[in-house]
Design a protein around this nucleic acid. Structure first.
Lengths: 341, 341
DNA sequence: TTGAAAGCGCTAACAT
DNA sequence: ATGTTAGCGCTTTCAA
């Protein structure tokens, strides 16, 4: 089979001619094969094969007003939690014959908006985003186009769009309460960068609330922000370790930061959890298998991806009413948390 | 702005009417604004704004025969090295106004083929894949449609399509030679699953070749295969640690496995590198910041992503001749490798 | 610089 | 069960 010049590709008309039938019938064997008499259908299928015919998506979309495409924008693919979300989302969509158009926001709302526009122009039939940090005008834009939207990693009834995840503030309160129940009084935190990141911000607020409710306060100097990288996490931990007195418990914004905190502590000759307790968030595969295994909040990232797909695909049948699906994270207590000495 | 029923969306004709001009002119302000007299153009732009007009991608594609979309299929997004590749690929495409259609193969050639078909039907203008493990018929299929294709993480002039990466066999030889130079004689390996994975297989072969060239052999019992997960890697390491005599050097198929190997060794009370030397492959961010820091092969994953985009976008200008871009990995010697005791 | 009109390849009434 | 035909919304000659 020789390379075919783009504009010489077989069309439905070519197939029809070759099979000695009409375009309509060819279209039928493509879309509802059962409505075509077997022998004719086979003739058409043979013609398709011989011509290496592939229907043109654009023409199909134009005629049906469907693109069978969903868009997703994550802060970055290079974060295991978003990667799992995407894998699940894409798998689920694939099973429904939908394709995934992917973009990254790099934690910048303007960039996210630009990518959303690009996706809308390509006619995506739904959009998956992460969290809530964005201009609310975005929802208006999507509503104006009547586009289903789902936010992952958050859950809030008050949102004008679907959400699937949890309440970061509340879940982080649980983590902090756990530390306090363990008798820790000097709490510290390595948070993600809170600017333009609702999840990171809500986790800080949750920790502070829990502390306050128990008559404690977290010294602002005991809260450092770090990019979600091992390197930044280690630097943040190093900073906390310089504090005097030293915090006895460090709650991290996610597992990457927690792993970094442990590594930094170990490399400074400290023992974990003896010298300091550490928690993560997400429960990446590494957390369970780390040494020592990490106490962390398990979030059901793939469930979230699957639910996001489902919400997008069923949005209209559900009358366009946004749903808030709560997938309760579970605090997994492992070996990085003990009472302070 | 109230939700608009899908079929009530403004078209180019609506805009033309409202601006008191023709569809052709509206199309011009969309595509070559400079060819339209300023006042008319502004009138058109105002009309577009007032109608919240967004051009319909499908109609555009049908008329221009361009979708401005590239497809990519990776084994799984949930592997940091592919995630980085995708982030870079997508960023680069985005800068050229192209969108990324993403799918996963889950290391299954049949699944990859199915996804490629889906992508082709959507009219992608190019496809990025990982490695070479697939039915060569796939290349024929792409050639028949005259679709640019690039393979990431491999580099081979003999391939009928573009490739950007390195030669896994050769690079793994370097790793093995490094171990041998260190005086290790009892080499072992935790490889990725080699079935349907050329990179994993080539790395095993490379290690074996290097050993043979130096008068050594790697006992088959010293080569275990493991999924690219911490858990599987730890199990693989546990198995190697049961061998008597114990290997003094363990080369891992990637960093995930290497980190797992270190964790397993540590959890068994061994010291790394004193008791056993370990190498990884990829140089994930974790490798450099691990404790102890990991000796590994640094691969330029984001360079690969960017180059893949470039190769796809310039394929035709280059006359459709496949290019093999070699991005030499660098062996980064850190603290997990010392001479045997 | 602008407009009229002919497609692009497919689907979906509608008719047979 | 099959065929005819009129669009879908845009771009692109070609004329004016």
């Amino acid at each position: 089979m020789k390379p075919v010049s783009k504009d010489a590709m077989a069309t439905i008309a070519d197939v029809a001619r070759r099979a000695g039938t009409s375009k309509a019938t060819v279209s039928r064997v493509l879309n509802r094969p059962d409505t075509v008499k077997p022998e004719l259908r086979e003739a058409v299928e043979r013609a398709m094969r011989e011509l290496a015919y592939v229907p043109l998506g654009a023409a199909r979309s134009l005629a049906t007003k469907r693109t069978r495409t969903i868009g997703a924008i994550v802060p970055t693919v290079d974060n295991a939690i978003f990667a799992r979300f995407l894998d699940a989302l894409q798998s689920e969509l694939s099973e429904h014959g939908m394709l995934l158009l992917l973009a990254s926001s790099w934690y910048e709302p303007e960039r996210e908006l630009a990518e959303v526009r690009a996706l809308v122009e390509r006619g995506v039939e739904g959009i998956a985003l992460i969290g809530t940090s964005r201009d609310p005008g975005m929802y208006e834009l999507l509503r104006a186009r009547d586009l289903p939207c789902v936010l992952g990693m958050v859950c809030d009834e008050a949102l004008p769009v679907n959400s699937v995840g949890w309440n970061n503030r509340l879940e982080m309160r649980k983590v902090a309460n756990f530390m306090i129940d363990l008798n820790h009084r000097h709490l510290a935190m390595i948070a993600g960068i809170t600017k333009d990141n609702d999840r990171a911000r809500d986790r800080v607020i949750g920790a502070q609330e829990a502390a306050r409710d128990r008559g404690l306060t977290i010294d602002p100097r005991d809260i450092v922000e770090a990019r979600y990288s091992i390197e930044a996490g280690r630097a943040g931990m190093a900073q906390l370790l310089r504090r005097r007195p030293r915090p006895t418990a460090v709650m991290c914004g996610n597992d990457v930061l927690a792993v970094a905190a442990v590594l930094e502590a170990l490399s400074q000759g400290l023992q974990i959890p003896r010298d300091i307790s550490i928690t993560g968030f997400d429960d990446l595969e590494l957390a369970a298998n780390f040494f020592p295994p990490l106490t962390t909040m398990h979030v059901h990232a793939d469930e979230i991806g699957r639910n996001a797909a489902r919400l997008l695909l069923t949005h209209r049948e559900r009358g366009g009413r946004p749903e808030a699906v709560y997938l309760r994270p579970d605090l997994i207590v492992r070996d990085t948390t003990v009472p302070p000495r």
